[in-house]
Simulated scan of single mutants.
Amino acid sequence: MPKSLNLFELLASRWHPSARFVRRAALAAVVMAVVIVVTGGAVRLTQSGLGCPTWPTCTEESLTPTHAMGINGVIEFGNRLLTYVLCAVVGLVILAARCHKPWRHSLTRLGWVQFWIVMGNAVVGGITVLTGLNPYIVSSHFLLSTALLTVAVITWQRTRESDAAPRDLVSRPVRQLTSLLVLATAALIVIGTVVTGAGPHAGDAEKVHRIPLDWQEITQLHVDFVYIVVGLTVALWFTLRAVGAAAAPRRTVVELFVVLLAQGVIGYVQYFTHLPEVVVGAHMFGSCLVWIAVLRVFLAQRERAGTDPGATGGTARDLTGETADAAPAEPAGADRALAGR
């Protein structure tokens, strides 16, 4: 008797998406991860956090917002609906990775990690509403969204690589400096989340509990970490230049520096203009770009031998969209110069 096929196997036997399609699906997941952060911020900034006062339905009697709930109910419910769009995009990543020939199990696993983060964050979002916008739950809701963005970016990068073991392209001290930059940026984002939890934009017009800290003092700490991250970025650029790194990885550091400068300008504008909603929203969007840029810097410092199994022409694409030949032999010396990608 022939072995029965499950749904995934049946679909994989009929649909064979190209490597380019898989990459585009992974990129769409990155975009949606950013969109869900920005729209979640819009919910808070428009005081729509309790636009739907219960969860998973909008009211105890209705799944959708009623006319009496006004624009706040529409905004909150619209953000909930975007979660379904995000699930659909992540599902597409999983299916495309599963049906691509040859099947790359690593991509499928990364897709499922994204799916379960989305599911967990949906529950946290519900708890946020049921607890009346508890600032600690709201903060964890944002940080889980950042975790989703992290996995989405890694998945996108992995669609442009083979499944060979990664090889460092720079020496250990350079990698350690880069890791320190990543950790400092993560701390910057966490402190920014605390500023939000203690600041004036509580997410609802009614009195909402806030983190009992002086938000201006926390803001100063946030600014201090901005200087630390900028300093580490400059130090990393000079280090890569000193060890003879190729232009592509140095360019990712320059891109990070530019994003940091733009984000710093927005941060100062929002502070001195007393936190207008539009500028705060732009700052949240900028935080996503900063985190993506930092991940790009980190991922640019290693490579996997060979090419994408589904690619043709003997080339694979990296995050910058440039084509690269198969990895050359590892250079000798304490510092490995990056082979031109």
Rank of each mutant, 00 (worst) to 15 (best):
Q301G: 00
V118G: 01
G231N: 11
D308L: 09
E206P: 01
V153T: 00
G192P: 08
A324H: 15
W291E: 01
V254M: 03
H67N: 12
A329W: 11
H67M: 09
D335N: 15
I154S: 01
A326I: 06
G313T: 01
I228C: 07
S48W: 00
I137R: 02
F285M: 13
A311L: 07
D163K: 12
T193E: 10
R80Q: 09
H201W: 09
W237N: 01
T159E: 10
A88M: 13
V269S: 08
A186L: 15
R251T: 08
W112G: 02
F285V: 08
A282I: 04
L86C: 06
S162D: 12
A165R: 15
T185G: 03
V258N: 07
W156Y: 10
V153Q: 02
N121A: 06
I137A: 06
A246V: 05
R250M: 07
H100Y: 06
N6S: 12
A242K: 15
R336L: 13
E330Q: 14
A42T: 06
W291P: 02
G199V: 08
V278A: 14
F115K: 04
Y227M: 11
K101S: 13
L82N: 01
A19F: 06
R23T: 03
K101Q: 14
V259T: 12
A88P: 08
G306C: 11
H16V: 10
A235H: 09
N72L: 03
P102R: 10
T273K: 04
V138W: 02
E206F: 02
I36L: 07
R210H: 14
L92P: 00
A324Q: 15
L27Q: 08
L130G: 00
S145M: 11
T57P: 04
V195H: 10
L338S: 03
W112D: 02
V258S: 05
R167T: 14
R14Q: 03
A202G: 04
F77T: 00
V234N: 11
G73N: 10
L289S: 08
I266E: 09
G244V: 08
G310N: 11
R14Y: 07
P65I: 04
A88D: 04
V243E: 09
N121Q: 10
I228N: 02
S171Y: 10
S139D: 07
L221D: 09
C58S: 05
G244H: 09
V89L: 08
N134I: 11
K101H: 12
L95G: 02
R304E: 11
L110P: 00
V229E: 04
L11F: 13
E330M: 13
L221V: 14
A97H: 01
H16N: 14
R251K: 12
A327V: 14
Q157A: 12
L63V: 15
A332M: 12
A198K: 09
L181N: 05
G281Q: 05
R302Y: 12
T315C: 06
L92Q: 04
T146M: 11
H105V: 13
C87K: 12
S171A: 15
T46D: 06
A262I: 06
S171W: 10
V269T: 11
E9H: 12
K3R: 15
A262L: 08
V43D: 00
A33K: 06
